[in-house]
Nucleic acid binder design. Structure first.
Lengths: 205, 205
DNA sequence: CCTGTTTTGTAGTGAACACTATTAAAGTTC
DNA sequence: GAACTTTAATAGTGTTCACTACAAAACAGG
């Protein structure tokens, strides 16, 4: 496939440039991100972009794949890193809010929620990637719950997948609110209640 | 302001055209919607668009305002129409899924979630309108809960605003999943659990 | 250090963009 | 029905869009 013999090496880091492009898409959307915007942020000229990534569309899809498969979603990492399950859910929620309200790169929300989701109807290949990302994340969270149930840290009657989906859906709510510019404090306030909601099994006879 | 004396009347319905433009923005996003797309859907020529709405940006803001203040959000209407509160929440959830997965106009998701939210960072005036819409909706739902508590249909210790925000956030999750092309059936499955979650007060001693 | 290969940077391609000047047509009013 | 006002439709405006020829430059191999 990649028929590279010898010659001048790339003067920029491919992965770094890809990440930079993702932040531009994130901030401006697929249509809103111009090649000029992209190349400026990536620190390269347009011919390099086309030689390296094909075209705008391919670059976009690659950025999605990169995000989905490189633990680019900080809250999920926080969730999986934390040993105590209650603390893990709590950290996830907190990370979602912190991360969504002011990311290091200045963009708000979540790449998948705020950008890819919008383009899903128009940009070919976006919806299917989004769908797989959602299903994968559901499963990933549920797996952790199952693990904790096996360890005895969670009650057996907790419906893992149902609660995993709940946790992810609550995330969408937070991301949306951050995107709308709402005060993070107001969101942090009811985290505790939601953590219990996710982890407490059906509470009646 | 509007200095209209006499002359030829508009050959199209202003509100109808505005609604049509909203659906285009909804489907394609702000940047993705071209004047050509808009005028085609609105059934008018571009000079009429500019004469009537100013420019693309003003048209967009007006479309947002229209959506926010004209009960254009079907699920919310379903929620407020249904007399029984449990059924109201259930209808809301169901409407969100039905409405988000396949709208009459062929667009998926929600205008605010899928379009305005993305443009909030770039299009002037979008974020503030989005924020007000979220806060208003929170309050609107909470008001209904308060009303039901006064009627005795809901327990006094149910935190109205907290549950209102929860209900709206769950909505974002559903909308997102619909946008990702997930199967509606899988979402309809755990509605009942979520309805109880919204309406059941904190369940311990 | 010369040949070959690849990446750069400049400059520019046609097409699509948001937007408008202009003219013809359609109503309203007296 | 003539005068006036306003909208409608055509046909453009300059600008920006995604994308690319082309030529100079930078490295690898011998």
């Amino acid at each position: 496939m990649t028929k590279k013999k010898t010659g001048r090496p790339l003067s920029f880091d491919r992965e770094e440039a890809l990440l930079a492009s993702m932040h531009v898409f994130w901030a401006k959307g697929y249509e809103g991100a111009s090649i000029k915007d992209l190349t400026a942020a990536m620190g390269i000229n347009s011919p390099s972009l086309y030689a390296t990534f094909g075209d705008k569309h391919k670059l976009y899809l690659e950025a999605i794949d990169y995000y989905a498969s490189n633990d680019a979603c900080a809250p999920l990492v926080a969730f999986e890193t934390e040993p105590d399950i209650t603390q893990a859910v709590r950290s996830f929620m907190k990370a979602v809010i912190d991360y969504s309200c002011e990311n290091a790169s200045g963009v708000r929300g979540c790449f998948l929620s705020s950008c890819v989701s919008t383009s899903a109807g128009e940009v070919e290949g976006a919806q299917e990637r989004l769908q797989r990302a959602v299903l994968d994340t559901d499963a990933r969270i549920a797996r952790r719950f199952e693990l904790e149930k096996a360890r005895g840290a969670l009650p057996e009657n907790l419906p893992s997948l149902e609660r995993a989906k709940l946790m992810l859906d609550l995330r969408q709510g937070y991301v949306f609110r951050c995107r709308a510019g709402l005060d993070p404090e107001s969101m942090l306030a009811d985290i505790e209640f939601r953590v219990q909601m996710v982890l407490t099994p059906p509470c009646e006879a």
